[in-house]
Design a protein around this nucleic acid. Sequence first.
DNA 1: TATATATTTGCACCATGGTGCATTTATGCA
DNA 2: TGCATAAATGCACCATGGTGCAAATATATA
Lengths: 115, 115
Amino acid sequence: MKSRTTCCRELERWLEPATFKALGEPSRAALLMLLAGTPGPRTVGELAAELPIDLSVVSRHLKVLKDVGVVTAERSGKEVRYRLACGDLVHMLRNLADALESCCPTGITELEAGR
Amino acid sequence: MKSRTTCCRELERWLEPATFKALGEPSRAALLMLLAGTPGPRTVGELAAELPIDLSVVSRHLKVLKDVGVVTAERSGKEVRYRLACGDLVHMLRNLADALESCCPTGITELEAGR
DNA sequence: TATATATTTGCACCATGGTGCATTTATGCA
DNA sequence: TGCATAAATGCACCATGGTGCAAATATATA
């Protein structure tokens, strides 16, 4: 098990507020699920067609997700194809879980969780 | 590997916007790190003493974290001891990571991550 | 160049929410 | 009961940000 000071550095590294704020907005969470729901990239128009919000708003949400590295964008002619950065996201979540687990004394944790 | 429809249900289950919104606020992220940084519970006053915000604000932030299950509260005399629900949080993060991984075709994912 | 389509950006509106101060509530003790 | 301490709540202020519409930009094609 890592030391407590080490786990705190790890926590600070992976608990990026901007990323969680990006994922914490319902419309953006819906976008993420749409992107995860089908293989391959999707255009802004395709995504907007499946949500009850304006295309321009979808474009802005995708920019937010791109800025925190949750999605990647690639222009293809007139369209821009957005793709979920699945590997990076999974990597972040697992590292954060590991960091938290390093911090929390397992015994107490299990007790608290009531299992 | 789970089917795509299954992974979407799992995603919807674990990608709770309220939880991520709670973690996406810098002051609350700081609270989480303080709670993870030392073993055992902390009182509102102790936590407020380590942050540049008013005690009342800390109290409110802790309520938000409690409402989404990130921390637990236990009154002990005049004090209220807040504790990180570490096990639940780790559980949620790992399940979310698994759901995402089930959705994303691994080959494409690895390519995107540039590894 | 002119036109059409896809996306982004400027703008204004408005809801949400983070903040501090003052007050209230909860608890323990004399 | 009265007083002191810890925490929560009411309130007002203000910054942030989600939203739609219109205009601007990017790209392909005639």
